[in-house]
């Protein structure tokens, strides 16, 4: 199945606004994150937040076709 991955702030500058990822049916968010870290090393080097369809959720969440996974840095502070 295909899911959409969106990036924000400096991650967007690194990887673009969004990309599509082919994953196995009923893949968990953890599996998707592992796949993304394999592809983009930077994602494994810092703590980022993850949401599915606009809601921050746990890594055991089971995804479905067309879900939107957003990956974003913690608040910028400053």
């Amino acid at each position: 199945m295909r899911i959409e991955v969106k990036y924000y702030a400096w991650l967007r500058e690194e990887f673009g606004d969004k990309e599509f990822l082919e994953v196995e049916n009923r893949a968990t968010l953890k599996e998707v994150v592992e796949k993304l870290i394999e592809k983009h090393e930077l994602l494994g080097s810092e703590n980022f937040l993850i949401s599915v369809n606009g809601k921050i959720t746990g890594l055991d969440t089971v995804l479905k076709e067309g879900d939107v996974v957003s990956i974003f840095p913690p608040a910028g502070g400053g």
């Binding site: 702030a9 910028g76 400053g78």
Partner: peptide, 17 residues
Amino acid sequence: PIWKKEITPKGGRWVRG
């Protein structure tokens, strides 16, 4: 989750922390 990027004569930089 709100981020700021400063544009200076040296280029852009994200405000972190």
